[in-house]
């Protein structure tokens, strides 16, 4: 008979293990220490932040949101407004308020403000949207994304319309992105085990029973919506600093579907699923990209034709979903129980 680990260890093990997985990538980046590889790891950390943000809302509430990439867009542009040197801003975005035109904030503060900006927007919009549930809520969030995209693609003087906004300071070191991803995981976990998170998951599984037991579904959904908007907004700000350019169309349907796919492939009702989905799909995409560039097989370079990468990803996703309809993690959390790792169900474990 092995002694069961303490409740404390079981509670905190999930985020710790996930952060440890990310730390391995951080260590790998430090070992390889090449520019392109760092960029790959940075991309993956941004995606982890983004998908974990999505999970906070989708996983806990069970409502599929197509709109969160809108928050990413808000966060990215907010950090662009705050960090582009004032001289360039006056040329490119003359419509901004004077206060913002004059300021230039450091990266660390600007990205958090980007997240807060998205969260405030979510508070206002969420007040209205969170009355809806099921597919109507999904479509309403999609409509929100479309509104944000239309406004940002046409508001010439403030967002530069469809042309790309340049001059955002590029941050090429990996650890800030790691910190953000780890922070997102911690916030998501703390929310999931909080009173509101438990109430919301109860409402997801049995809406009528939960509301009969005194859960105000709209309120709990709104809380999750705001927190997830903060994290996805932060991810948007990070992505802006990772490439130095923002355009509205970066933050539209393609990104929406890629992030949703990562979440669903991983298992949309668990935090571990969100992280594993990103890690697994990112690794596959990276390997395929390498093949696209050409791989040296004993003197002969073999390359797969362009476009085959996306086709393979699509097929891999379908196959994973056929084999595991509820995602790679089967909607369970990875927890520390004893050697080796064992899984318990998400509803019973957290």
């Amino acid at each position: 008979m092995t002694k069961r680990p303490s409740i404390f260890l079981r509670t905190v093990s999930t985020p710790l293990i996930l952060i440890l997985v990310l730390a391995c990538f951080l260590a790998l980046a430090a070992l390889v220490n090449s520019g392109p590889f760092n960029q790959v790891v940075i991309d993956a950390f941004v995606k982890v932040t983004l998908v974990v943000g999505l999970y906070v809302f989708i996983g806990n509430s069970g409502v599929i949101s197509f709109g969160h990439i809108g928050f990413t867009c808000l966060g990215a542009y907010a950090t662009a407004w705050l960090t582009i040197p004032p001289m360039m801003k006056k040329m490119a975005l003359p419509g901004l308020p004077d206060l913002i035109l004059e300021t230039k904030l450091p990266f660390g503060i600007a990205i958090v403000l980007g997240g807060i900006f998205a969260a405030i927007f979510a508070l206002i919009v969420g007040k209205i949207l969170m009355r809806l549930s099921g597919i109507a809520a999904s479509i309403a969030t999609f409509a929100m994304l479309a509104v944000i995209n239309t406004v940002y693609s046409n508001w010439e003087r403030v967002t530069g319309a469809t042309s790309s906004v340049v001059g955002i300071p590029i941050v090429r070191v990996v650890w800030p992105y790691f910190l953000a991803a780890a922070g997102a995981i911690l916030i998501a976990h703390l929310y999931a085990i909080s009173r509101s998170g438990l109430a919301l998951r109860a409402a997801r599984d049995e809406a009528i029973a939960a509301s009969a037991s005194g859960v105000d579904i709209g309120r709990e959904r709104l809380i999750a919506f705001i927190i997830s908007a903060f994290i996805t907004g932060l991810a948007g700000a990070l992505s802006a600093h990772s490439v130095g350019v923002v355009t509205p169309d970066t933050f539209y349907l393609n990104l929406t579907f890629i992030c949703l796919s990562m979440l669903v492939v991983g298992g949309m009702n668990s935090l571990s699923g969100a992280v594993m989905g990103v890690v697994v799909l990112s690794v596959i995409i990276q390997v395929l990209r390498q093949f696209e560039k050409g791989v040296d097989f004993g003197g002969t370079v073999l390359a797969i034709p362009n476009g085959l990468q996306e086709i393979t990803i699509g097929i891999v996703m379908v196959v994973i979903l056929i084999a595991r309809p509820s995602g790679l993690t089967r909607n369970t959390e990875i927890v520390w129980r004893r050697w080796p790792f064992k899984r318990v169900s998400a509803t019973a474990g957290s």
């Binding site: 599929i64 579907f257 949703l260 796919s261 669903v264 492939v265 949309m268 034709p305 362009n306 476009g307 085959l308 996306e310 086709i311 990803i313 699509g314 097929i315 996703m317 379908v318 979903l321 056929i322 309809p325 509820s326």
Partner: peptide, 28 residues
Amino acid sequence: RRFRNANPATMMIASFALGFVIKYTLLM
């Protein structure tokens, strides 16, 4: 046909992945 008992979200993502495959086949 392989998603008869899956939840709607899984089916939706599967249909999206299928669309992805069709679109990039055309692109290629």
